Simulated scan of single mutants.
Amino acid sequence: LLWLAGWSHSHSSRIRRLPQSPPYTTFDSNSAGGQGTLLAYGPPGTGKTALAHHLAEQADRPLRKRTASELISPYVGMTEKNLARAFREARKEGAALLLDEADSFLTDRSQARQSWETTRTNELLVQIEAFDGILMCATNFLEALDPAALRRFDHKLELRSLDQQQRAQLFDQLISRLQPSDADDRAAIDTAHAVVRRLDGLTPGDFATVVRGHSRRGTPRAGLTLQALANALVGEHRIKPGTGARRAGFA
């Protein structure tokens, strides 16, 4: 399931378009033709990377993901060379290119304190302008991007956290996948759902974290309960900025 990688088909309803921005389906069809630029932004765990994998698959292209840690160098001029190499290799391989943490490369030049911050942004803007393949950039910090960068992208998509209905749907999938011992207890299901409904800000990535955690531990079905699953999501919710003081879950 795509949501296990941080994406849900139902999550597409949480994509919001910027004014005059074409819809997601338009980029999907354009990318199938081998060309297009997309900026995906939103909180961590909302599925930006998984969306890039999905679009590359739909376009029948390999995906080349490059992160800030791979491209940024402490040596003057090397970051620009690394960026140019990433585009050159993607073009040569016919691959879709994903630049994760794009805010690290496209910082607002009006806020730059060092000359290399400006040259790094300039280099990436030039590369985007000249690239004739499929480019996707992902960021958690849209407000940090240089205004000129936004004009370089054909499509800008905001991926939001899950709404109440989507949380309920993913929790049902979580129950179906992990099969807790009380999965047939209607009262326990209703109680657990009541907890999950209160967890505003959850993302598909939070559900994926819970799945991975229980899968790695190999918890037997007899030792896993709906209460444990709901409280695991409460734990993911509690560490989010601005939610630590809120109380939710089973007593």
Rank of each mutant, 00 (worst) to 15 (best):
N140G: 02
Q35G: 03
M136I: 13
A194F: 10
D108M: 03
A228S: 14
A251E: 14
D60S: 13
W3H: 08
L162W: 12
S13D: 11
D146G: 10
G218C: 02
N231E: 07
D172H: 15
K81G: 08
Q111D: 08
V210W: 01
A90R: 00
E143I: 08
L150V: 12
R64H: 12
L1Q: 15
F131Y: 04
P180G: 03
T225G: 09
D108P: 00
V211E: 05
R160A: 15
S104A: 12
T118Y: 09
H11S: 11
G244K: 00
M78I: 15
Q58E: 08
R221T: 13
G133W: 05
P180W: 01
A32F: 11
V76N: 04
D108K: 12
D146H: 11
N140S: 04
S161E: 10
A245Q: 14
L39P: 12
R247F: 09
L229E: 05
A230V: 09
H214S: 06
E129S: 10
H9M: 13
T79N: 01
A194L: 07
E129M: 07
A96N: 02
R109M: 00
R160W: 13
L162E: 07
S29Y: 14
S73N: 00
W116Q: 04
N30L: 15
G47D: 00
H54W: 11
A245S: 09
G218W: 05
H155C: 01
A222K: 10
P62R: 08
R120Y: 10
Q35S: 07
T225Q: 03
Q58F: 11
D182R: 01
E89H: 07
S215E: 10
G77K: 00
D184H: 12
P180F: 04
P43E: 03
D190K: 15
T119K: 06
A96E: 00
L39G: 07
T46P: 05
L157E: 06
D163S: 09
I189Y: 13
L97W: 02
H11R: 07
D28W: 14
L1T: 15
H155W: 10
E70Y: 08
Q164D: 14
A5D: 14
R212P: 03
G6W: 06
F27M: 02
S69P: 11
S12D: 10
L174T: 01
A5N: 13
Y41G: 01
R17E: 11
A32P: 14
L135P: 15
L71F: 06
A96Q: 02
L229Q: 06
A183E: 13
Y75A: 04
H53E: 13
A148R: 12
L145V: 08
T209N: 09
S21N: 13
A86K: 02
A112M: 06
D28S: 15
R152A: 03
C137Y: 05
P43F: 10
Q165A: 15
P62S: 05
G213H: 06
G42L: 01
L178V: 10
R238E: 04
T203D: 05
G213F: 01
G42Q: 03
L199F: 08
C137K: 08
T219Y: 04
V195A: 00
A251P: 14
H214D: 08
L174C: 11
G242M: 02
V210C: 03
G47V: 05
A248I: 06
F131S: 03
D108F: 07
L226K: 02
E89P: 01
L71G: 00
T121R: 03
R120D: 05
R167Y: 11
E101S: 02
S181P: 13
R217S: 07
P241G: 01
R91W: 01
I72L: 06
